[in-house]
Nucleic acid binder design. Structure first.
Lengths: 116, 116
DNA sequence: GAAAGTGTGTACTATGTAGTACACATGACA
DNA sequence: TGTCATGTGTACTACATAGTACACACTTTC
């Protein structure tokens, strides 16, 4: 599914419970023109900026990382983390590329409870 | 150190051994105008594209990930890896943000020799 | 049946990205 | 001493990004 159609779905589901989730009102709340949000939801324009996606995520109670991924973007804070130690994280990510989810989850937990 | 001054240093070190590492010849080999490479090395222009940085890295025998990081860019292939499983890798990276190098290296090795 | 609210089409804009093209002054070298 | 190569200044360009502004037709709602 594309970012646009996903956003439209999520917004319309919200709207069933809450009348303030019209395209215009959401646009007003996140600070863009209604016409622009309309185009975003129909994938008529390329995905908006990271900031706009984050404000959308907040308003629609969605995971920003997921929406950003649908937009083909990697969160700026993750990029910053990688840029601190580019070679280290490059190795790690390439190593984990084909690892199954549960293996990565294990690593995440290991590090969280880590005693390094 | 900036990308530009770093590149100039590396190129000039190459040049001591190999006369073909003039700005003009490197520019010719990597396929950009000499004037442009000159500006890159003096940080007069913003960092070039990922492709151009990679060609520079190849010509100067430098680590592309390092040069890209100096340019404030994250390698496209790493972004692609993250975009496959954005939430999983987002958690992992934020978890590892402040971990010491050796802890991350341990993880890298663990995964490499991993028996998952 | 008028007012208010809804989504959308068209036109336009400002800024950033990623360079090219050419002229010029200087230095090496044969 | 003329040629050739070197680095650089100036001007320009094409395309992408991230939107705004306004008019319009349709639908509720009162």
């Amino acid at each position: 599914m594309t970012l646009g159609s996903y956003l439209r779905n999520v917004r319309e589901r919200h709207r069933e419970r809450d009348r303030t989730y019209s395209l215009r009102q959401v646009a007003l709340r996140i600070g863009v023109e209604p016409a622009y949000l309309s185009k975003i939801e129909r994938d008529v324009v390329p995905p908006p900026s990271e900031g706009t996606i984050r404000r959308l995520a907040r308003d629609l109670e969605e995971d920003p990382d997921l929406l950003l991924a649908m937009a083909g973007k990697v969160s700026g804070d993750l990029q910053a983390i990688i840029l601190q130690r580019p070679q280290l994280f490059a190795d790690l990510l390439r190593q984990l590329k084909d690892a199954p989810d549960h293996a990565i989850l294990t690593v995440v937990r290991e590090v969280r409870d880590g005693d390094w």
